[in-house]
Write a protein that binds this DNA or RNA. Structure first.
Lengths: 225, 225
DNA sequence: CTGCTGCATACCGTATACAAAATACGAAAT
DNA sequence: ATTTCGTATTTTGTATACGGTATGCAGCAG
């Protein structure tokens, strides 16, 4: 029987706001006025405030001393740190996955890999991004650590915003393909160290691309500050 | 001039609830009824709900499908995972601190170390715990990564609850003393690798003590489940 | 005695109301 | 013209009200 999960408005709004932030629909540094936002979304302030508290806890929003929230601005240094930490945690996820992945989970990873190759060949960027996200989610599931999954989710909120805006996904498809393959192979072989290493390289690989773009852009626009 | 931070009731309650949870004043698995809790704390449901959302985001509470919150129970395996991840992150904090600590920050660490020794000699357990927390906070400040600080804060909520309840602090004072000294020395020398290694050992060291107690206790009581 | 049905109650999610604090704005004085 | 002060307006924080849904229990049918 299909399990029916009831989402509260507050949670729904949390997801929606997060997407809006990541997609850059809101300016960094911008003040978020509850009344206006609530009206815009067609809800009352209560569930909106729930979402704001959650996003503050995740570090996307910053509480002003005087009250209210601001979309937290951040710089290249912070993104670099986030990438490093993400590499650390994703590597551990990969290692855990190598030790604990079930055959079904490995099969799912293989399927994702195949789909990824296909999307890369067809230059379907949206699907590529989607499959990439799925790849990491599958791995987290295989790793079986809820804690790591949660922490990574938070970090991604901060980084994704930049990545989405700046990295030319075109290039990414090419090397991600091979990186993913290496990781899956290590997981399938049950080689935790190799999986961790490959994942670490993969994350840093992507991070470098982001940072190059970011640093390069920093001179031109006072960019997200 | 002393910086006056205005706390909203919601934030105040978040802190208070967290302390209550960590101190074990609430039973794991226990249902948290908003009306009752609010009445008990002498506030309305609104700021209480703010706190509940925050704590859910931190993973201390769990949303029931039917609505409402439950104090999330957890087991030895989960604590072990938390300790491992904490070791990973604290090690990075130590490494960063070794690279970036200012002389003042090193001095603060040394002062903490001295106070710690004194408290250990006097068997002042409360002060010992306090100084230990301070030690890690000082190191995080020296490391300068807000992201790491935030993530560690969250993890600690989950683990601290167990530690507080189970670890005989008496013993801890003895080896923590030396561990801390080693870490400070490495930081002062600017040796990132050594600092990371020492910190990792320190965290795992403490983690082992917790897990021994926890696993041992698990047979007797079906303990926090 | 067991299991189903309907009702009463408890509790949550959301909206709204209100007071206090902050911000914006303009007038007056230097 | 600039600064300062006072006032109007905005906006937040907290409380309260309301409707809906889950939960538990009593009574009835099998």
């Amino acid at each position: 029987m299909a399990r029916l999960v009831k989402q509260s408005l507050g949670q729904e709004v949390t997801r929606m706001l997060k997407r809006m932030i990541i997609d850059g629909e809101l300016e960094p540094g911008q003040r978020l006025v509850e009344d206006r936002l609530a009206a815009e979304l067609g809800i009352s302030r209560t569930p909106l405030r729930e979402a704001l508290h959650r996003l503050e806890q995740e570090g996307l929003l910053q509480k002003r001393a005087a009250g209210g929230y601001v979309l937290r601005p951040f710089d290249a240094e912070e993104v670099e740190e986030a990438v490093q930490v993400r590499a650390l945690l994703e590597a551990r996820v990969a290692a855990l996955a190598a030790r604990r992945a079930t055959p079904e989970q490995v099969a799912a990873l293989r399927a994702n890999l195949a789909a990824f190759r296909e999307a890369a060949a067809g230059a379907d960027l949206a699907r590529l991004a989607e499959l990439n996200a799925e790849f990491h989610l599958l791995l987290r599931a295989a790793g079986g650590s809820l804690l790591l999954a949660r922490l990574l989710d938070e970090i991604e909120g901060v980084v994704e915003r930049i990545i989405r805006a700046l990295v030319p996904l075109r290039e990414a498809g090419e090397w991600s393909d091979e990186d993913h393959a290496r990781i899956v192979a290590a997981v399938e072989a049950g080689d935790a160290d190799a999986a961790a290493k490959a994942m670490r390289a993969h994350v840093l690989h992507g991070g470098e691309a982001v940072l190059d773009t970011l640093r390069h852009a920093e001179g031109e626009t006072p960019p997200l500050k």
